[in-house]
Amino acid sequence: MRILHTSDWHIGRTFHGNSTMDALAEVLGALVAQVRESDIDVVIVAGDVFDSATPAGPAYRLLGDTLLALHETGARVIVTSGNHDSAARLGFQARLLRDGIHVMTDPLSVGMPVTLDDADGPVHFYGVPYLEPAVVRQYWPEVPLRSQAQTMAHAMNLVRAGMAEHGGRSVAIAHCFAAGVDATVGLEREVRQGGLDVVPLSVFDGPDYVALGHIHGRQALSERVRYAGAPLHYSFGEQHKERGSWLIDLDATGLASVEWLALPVPRRLVTLTGTLDEILADENVAAHVGDWVCAVYTDALPQAEPMRRLKERFPHCAMVQHTPVGGPEQEERSYSARLKSAVTDTERIEAFLEHVRAGQGASERESELIREVLNERVVAEALV
């Protein structure tokens, strides 16, 4: 059986205020062509299909067009929900979809596979949607679910119970932050929001292959546990990362081979650093006039209308930063650095409090209140 592992489409996301819909449609069209050319049997989309719990109409149209195009290749499609998706909205039409398209968003169904057959027999696909502990602990009150690690461990225990019942080959699909991820790949802001921890790699023992989503760069945590990453660049921090999908071959005994299939990049991303005049030099313009540009200018003083001047030369300049050499005070630089390096909302709030209180962070009681408020927000957004 040939399987294509993709994830994190984020349909509807903007890039510094610019729509990515046309670019993503182009990339997903290329993915459909790869499915046809490589005789793919099953396409896995491991969560974050949409960028929002309330997608706009064009986002639904692009998803519908892509699912239809994949179906027409003869491939079966299995989709799970991620933290950006509304599981209810993504899953409500699951029973209405045509044969061969499966949307798996129900936490109570993680141990019940979608079973597809090839010449060597059945392959069981176990879909684990994004599981927010505060939301799903109501389904399993007998199990302590205070963290993502505990919640995913319980879900994978249910998967292994399903594997024992059904036998044969198996593939698990999940959306989480697994231990061993390279932090330079460009992590999602929500990856550890509200103090959620990482999931140990051992949690995923058992299946022949584990298709993960949540991280926007490809990652091979082991031969059989991988992230495919997003099919499109969604930030300048991702600009040097390849976009694509994993092509998985299963034989009669399990995982046979894994191959990377690269996807085209509709518009390259580049960061240009130097004085504003250096960035605007003819050679830079000639090399990057068609690229998305992040300009980091190092002049000692702020320059007049830098974005206007940059856009006159680089029509797709999306971001400008003033980073003078030795300019800002060290305290301000350290505050900016703390904000830039913060992964969770809690860390951002802590950095802000330390900044405005001359180094004094949140008290123990304040930290508790911050966590409570953030967790309440996560629950509210998950139930949308």
Rank of each mutant, 00 (worst) to 15 (best):
His355Gln: 14
Glu72Phe: 02
Thr275Trp: 07
Ala134Glu: 13
Glu165Asp: 04
Gln148Pro: 01
Val265Lys: 04
Leu263Arg: 11
Val384Ala: 10
Asp65Ala: 15
Gly217Phe: 14
Val128Trp: 03
Ile279Tyr: 01
His71Asp: 03
Val191Arg: 04
Asp251Gly: 10
Lys241Cys: 12
Gln321Ile: 13
Ser202Tyr: 09
Gly326Asp: 02
Ile215His: 11
Arg268Met: 03
Leu353Pro: 00
Leu339Asp: 05
His355Val: 01
Arg13Ala: 14
Asp106Ile: 08
Leu353Glu: 10
Ser245Asn: 09
Leu339Pro: 04
Pro55Met: 03
Ala211Tyr: 13
Val143Trp: 03
Arg309Lys: 07
Arg137His: 04
Glu142Met: 07
Ala304Ser: 11
Val123Phe: 09
Asp291Ala: 10
Arg224Gly: 12
Val110Gln: 00
Gln219Tyr: 10
Val198Pro: 11
Thr6Glu: 01
Leu63Gln: 04
Leu255Val: 05
Asp182Leu: 03
Asp205Lys: 15
Gly82Ala: 04
Tyr335Ala: 14
Val103Met: 10
Leu221Arg: 15
Asn83Thr: 00
Ala362Lys: 03
Ser202Gln: 14
Asp106Gly: 12
Val114Ser: 04
Ala287Gln: 09
Leu4Asn: 00
Ile173Phe: 02
Phe50Gln: 02
Gly290His: 12
Gly217Thr: 07
Val185Thr: 03
Ala119Asp: 05
Ser19Arg: 15
Ser336Asn: 11
Arg189Asp: 08
Val343Asn: 13
Trp260Gly: 06
Pro302Val: 11
Asp85His: 08
Ala174Glu: 02
Glu242Leu: 14
Leu310Ile: 01
Gln239Ala: 13
Leu353Ile: 14
Ala286Phe: 05
Leu276Gly: 00
Asp291Thr: 07
Ser245Cys: 15
Leu250Arg: 10
Ala33Thr: 12
Arg61Phe: 10
Arg89Asn: 07
Leu232Asn: 05
Ala262Trp: 06
His102Met: 07
Phe236Thr: 08
Asp249Met: 08
Ile173Leu: 07
Gly274Phe: 04
Gly74His: 04
Asn83Arg: 02
Asp118Gln: 09
Asp197Ser: 06
Leu97Cys: 09
His355Lys: 13
Ala23Arg: 15
Leu383Cys: 01
Gly194Lys: 06
Pro315Ala: 00
Leu68Trp: 05
Ala380Cys: 07
Phe352Gly: 06
Gly91Ala: 05
Ala362Phe: 06
Pro122Val: 00
Asp118Phe: 09
Gly64Arg: 06
Glu366Arg: 01
Thr344Ala: 15
Leu263His: 07
Val103Tyr: 08
Pro133Ala: 08
Arg313Ser: 02
Asp208His: 14
Phe125Asp: 02
Asp41Met: 02
Phe204Asn: 13
Ala286Lys: 13
Leu263Ile: 01
Thr54Cys: 13
Arg377Phe: 14
Val45Arg: 02
Asp182Val: 05
Gln303Phe: 01
Glu190Cys: 12
Asp41Trp: 04
Val27Asn: 06
Met307Phe: 12
Gln193Gly: 08
Leu369Gln: 09
Thr273Trp: 11
Asp117Cys: 15
Pro200Phe: 08
Val384Tyr: 08
Asp282Gln: 14
Val136Trp: 05
Glu190Ile: 10
Gly254Ile: 10
Ala53Val: 15
Tyr60His: 13
Glu278Cys: 11
Asp249Glu: 13
Cys317Ser: 05
Gln34Thr: 05
Glu376Ala: 15
Val265Asp: 07
Pro207Met: 09
Val384Gln: 09
Glu329Tyr: 14
Ala220Ser: 14
Glu223Thr: 06
Phe15Glu: 00
Arg2Phe: 10
